[in-house]
Design a protein around this nucleic acid. Sequence first.
RNA 1: GGCGGCAUAGCCAAGUGGUAAGGCAGAGGUCUGCAAAACCUUUACCCCCAGUUCGAAUCUGGGUGCCGCCUCCA
Length: 466
Amino acid sequence: MIKIFNTLTRRKEEFVPLEDKRVNMYTCGPTVYDFFHVGNARVFITFDVIRNYLQFRGYDVRFVQNFTDIDDKMIKRASEEGVAVKELGDRFIEEYFKDADALGIKRADIHPRATEHIGDIIETIKILVEKGYAYEADGDVYYEARKFKDYGKLSHQNLDELEAGARVEPGEKKRDPMDFALWKAQKPGEPAWESPWGKGRPGWHIECSVMSMKYLGETIDIHGGGPDLIFPHHENEIAQSEAATGKTFARYFMHVGYLNINNQKMSKSLGNFFTVRDILKKYDPEVLRFFMLSSHYRSPINFSEDLMRQARSALERLYNTLYAMEHLEKTAKDARCLDEEEYLIALRQNRERFIQNMDDDFNTADAISVLFDIAREFNLKMSMLSQKAISQTAESLLELGRVLGFFYKFGNGELLDDEIQKKIEERQRARKDRNFALADRIRDELKEKGIILEDTPTGVRWKRLN
RNA sequence: GGCGGCAUAGCCAAGUGGUAAGGCAGAGGUCUGCAAAACCUUUACCCCCAGUUCGAAUCUGGGUGCCGCCUCCA
């Protein structure tokens, strides 16, 4: 039984999708005006794992993540750079996929763009106006928060409390500070589309309501995003969607914890801002993924180079084990000895434990510890295992690791080229002749080329330097 | 002012009523031509005080410290 912490109820609930074995999920993607940062990455990686895991558990997952390609930030950046908003969006969508691919974040089934759904957005706004939830004011259209009786149910605030802290920008034509824009009238130089209220563009919140419902239906199973989306973004999505349809918008809302720098929120003004693009210059993307998944997704985590180095060492340990398995799979003789029943039972139990941990609100930290347990058991007993047991272990470790998005680069037919293979043989001859100077020189040479040699009782084992 | 989160070894981090997973780093050891990897051993008054309980890191109350949301933000 999978349990999910639902922001709506603030508790872990048993996960029961609307349709048996089918899950519809939507997450709010990036605004494509720049490269994405490590905080964004945490959200994308988290939902990538959740999606993988649900599939692993046999669900048919339909996953949608949008691109916000029209809003204030887009307009501002485009004009700064002297390019069209469309051009800016195209460019950073491309850059998004470069980073996401590197991090092993799989593509959503659909990545809709706001600007390609203007017609749908207008239709939904029309419905909200007709139903009396929205009003036009001078070319703008606002949603009247007070009309929606459940407003605040996600962020657990009531309107009066929210209103006390609300800020009204001068020049806004809202009737109430808590009202928010569904449609904004065009300002000079801004991109705009024709609408019943004149030329303009959509507000931020409406796009997600519209695209979620268009591709996944009026009621979806899981809606997620970053922690600061709870209010107002997701609150507003609920208000818009549920007012329009009269149905529950999303049954489980999931929010990822913050990624902090020195225990503080990352912000451009503090200068503690890291893009994924920058970090990948120094660290393997898989290390970043490992680092993120070492903590529970809802806990705040701190990002630092020291922690990245710790993550790198830890991941390396798993890889060492994988290399050892690969090596032994080739050299192990069958009928090794020992009763390996017990070992295989423990392996199965570990696999079960992994599932239990992940079932419990996707506890990746616990799940990772199982990976290490499997590795230790194997390292301890590897010289006594049959080929079959070794293969089974490798299979399990790879299978479970890949649910978390690890090990994708492993074992895809990386063959040593002949030249390197010859060097290894040459070194073996030198070792036999006790010409250790030559042997060490060859080992160093290969290291230069990124190939690490390790001598073991069953022969030379090699791995690629990361 | 309203709402919420966190505090576990040198560092990171699970655990949420039965006496502390896992990783990194350190020390010692085994193995080894050397190296590497691996394995073994070793390191915790679970922020403080009071309470509930046969029993609390885990529940309750009160402190202390840190962080967040309520405003564009993942």
